[in-house]
Simulated assay, not measured.
Amino acid sequence: MSQPVLRRTEHVDWADAELAMWPGVSWSREARSKHHALILTYRGQSRKVIYPCSSSDSFRGPQNHLRDIRNVLKALGAERQIIVKQHGVRRKRNRTSPHRVVIADRATGGPKRDPWEALKEMRFPEPVTEQPRRKTLWQRVKGWIT
């Protein structure tokens, strides 16, 4: 199974969305020969984060790049903006509705036959509990010897 092909700018898009969550952090990009560099600056201190620029990187590539960005920013002392998630009103279960709906049979007008009724009428033979035990291999060998 092949890995999904990523767009060339996937790392850039994910990084821009993540860096917007870190107030006071400025960044710039630097094109290099094989890999690009993201230069992060916070309170006068700068660090480089290297990331691949090829689209053949795995799907985990952008996620690993975000992990590196977060680790570097934490090392610089930056704090991520806290997002308060807003939840909607929780739906409540309608306890007045019946749990089991009995559908009326069209021909008779009454309820349909219960599908479990046939199982109640079934009878199975009782298992035989006392069967003669077979001799073990050692008992048979002992019988041959004596």
Score class of each variant (00 low, 15 high):
94 N>K: 07
74 K>I: 12
131 Q>A: 12
34 K>G: 14
74 K>F: 03
56 S>Y: 15
14 W>S: 12
45 Q>C: 08
4 P>N: 13
129 T>H: 11
83 I>R: 09
55 S>E: 10
23 P>A: 09
142 K>Y: 07
105 D>E: 13
29 R>Q: 07
144 W>I: 12
36 H>Y: 04
55 S>M: 08
94 N>H: 07
89 V>G: 13
85 K>F: 12
140 R>E: 08
96 T>C: 04
104 A>R: 06
141 V>C: 07
77 G>C: 12
93 R>I: 15
64 N>Q: 04
38 L>V: 04
32 R>V: 09
68 D>M: 01
4 P>E: 14
90 R>W: 07
130 E>D: 09
23 P>M: 04
85 K>R: 12
92 K>Q: 13
40 L>E: 03
132 P>V: 06
112 K>W: 02
54 S>H: 09
123 R>F: 13
94 N>V: 14
56 S>Q: 09
81 Q>V: 05
58 S>Q: 07
28 S>I: 00
56 S>V: 07
133 R>W: 06
7 R>K: 14
97 S>G: 12
43 R>K: 11
62 P>W: 01
19 L>E: 10
125 P>R: 06
145 I>H: 05
136 T>M: 06
57 D>F: 05
105 D>C: 15
60 R>V: 14
129 T>W: 02
37 A>S: 08
133 R>E: 13
93 R>C: 14
101 V>R: 06
94 N>L: 11
99 H>S: 13
40 L>S: 02
47 R>A: 14
123 R>L: 08
23 P>D: 11
139 Q>D: 15
132 P>R: 02
131 Q>S: 06
110 G>W: 01
67 R>I: 11
8 R>Q: 12
32 R>D: 13
70 R>V: 06
24 G>K: 03
133 R>C: 04
145 I>S: 06
119 L>Y: 05
84 V>R: 12
46 S>F: 01
69 I>P: 03
69 I>T: 03
92 K>M: 15
131 Q>L: 08
17 A>T: 13
49 V>L: 07
95 R>A: 15
61 G>V: 01
82 I>N: 04
69 I>W: 01
81 Q>A: 12
33 S>M: 07
55 S>A: 11
25 V>F: 11
20 A>Q: 14
70 R>P: 00
120 K>E: 15
29 R>N: 03
88 G>T: 08
50 I>G: 02
58 S>V: 03
108 T>C: 08
142 K>W: 09
30 E>Q: 10
23 P>H: 07
30 E>V: 13
106 R>W: 14
64 N>Y: 04
63 Q>P: 00
56 S>G: 09
50 I>Q: 04
119 L>C: 01
73 L>N: 05
72 V>H: 00
117 E>F: 12
119 L>F: 12
26 S>F: 07
